[in-house]
Amino acid sequence: MKRIVIFASGSGTNAENLIKFFHNRETASVIQVLTNNPYAKVLERCKNLNVSALSFNRVAFSKSEDVLNILKSTKPDLIVLAGFLWKFPEFILKEFSNKVINIHPALLPKYGGKGMYGMHVHKAVVANKESETGITIHYVNENYDEGAIIFQAKCIVLPSDTSEDVASKIHKLEMEHFPKVVEKTLSE
């Protein structure tokens, strides 16, 4: 069985969706969730779902090998970023080459890069009067949102849509596609 470690920073709806999707599957299992936010709701979700979850600080993540050592000990087949906001250190990426993927709430390369996450993306999409947006699942490299694209799904943006409307459409795409794409990526 393949092993998945999730990194999250906030509420954890994508993490919960992945945990539930893989719960009774024979293909893979979410073995741990790591967060950079000790107050993240994802920690509560993990407790309720009986999944190991730990929080860490910036020193443990990028200035020491603490998080790297946790990953080495859990031996994940795939590391999934699900609303994780920090840039991944190159030394971790090197150790887990082509094993770190991310979901982004826009059709990259549009609306990617530092500071482009969550409602920041949706507000920009509405402000620029885009006719469509979507999600991008991609490999993580040393630059924000520039890794090779694995999958994209689109949705229409109506002229009357607010950023909250766009957020709701993106959330539906994430819930529908993310677990399936993770499973497919693990089988390749």
Rank of each mutant, 00 (worst) to 15 (best):
A28L: 01
R45H: 00
F88Q: 10
V33S: 14
N57D: 05
E44Q: 13
S55A: 09
S55K: 06
K87W: 15
S73E: 13
K99R: 12
V30Q: 03
E95Y: 02
K41P: 12
K47Q: 14
A53Y: 00
I79T: 08
I92V: 08
S29N: 13
V42K: 04
R45Q: 01
C46K: 02
L71Y: 01
E90N: 12
T35E: 06
P76L: 02
V33T: 06
C46Q: 08
F96V: 01
T27Q: 10
N36Y: 00
F88L: 07
E44K: 11
V33C: 06
V33E: 04
W86A: 11
K41R: 09
K99A: 06
K63P: 14
F22W: 02
S55Y: 07
P38V: 06
S29W: 09
I31H: 02
A28I: 05
L68K: 01
P89G: 09
A40G: 04
F56L: 10
A53S: 07
W86P: 15
P89V: 05
V30I: 00
L68M: 08
L49N: 00
V80T: 03
D77M: 05
K47P: 11
D77F: 03
D66S: 15
S29Y: 05
E90W: 09
I70V: 14
D66I: 11
D77V: 02
E44P: 14
S29Q: 13
N98A: 04
L34W: 01
F22L: 13
A28H: 03
K47V: 06
V67A: 07
K63Y: 08
K87Y: 14
N69M: 11
L93Y: 03
N57A: 00
Y39G: 14
F84A: 07
H23T: 10
P89M: 01
S64L: 08
P38K: 08
E95A: 03
W86K: 08
P89Y: 07
F21E: 08
S97L: 14
S64F: 03
K75Q: 10
P38M: 02
I31N: 04
E65H: 12
P38C: 03
S52V: 14
F56G: 04
D66A: 14
S64Q: 02
I92R: 03
N98E: 12
T74M: 13
E90D: 15
F21A: 15
L85W: 06
I70N: 08
G83Q: 01
T74S: 05
S73N: 15
V59Y: 06
E65L: 15
I92K: 09
R25Q: 09
F22M: 05
P38N: 05
S29L: 10
K63T: 07
Y39E: 13
S29V: 12
S73Y: 11
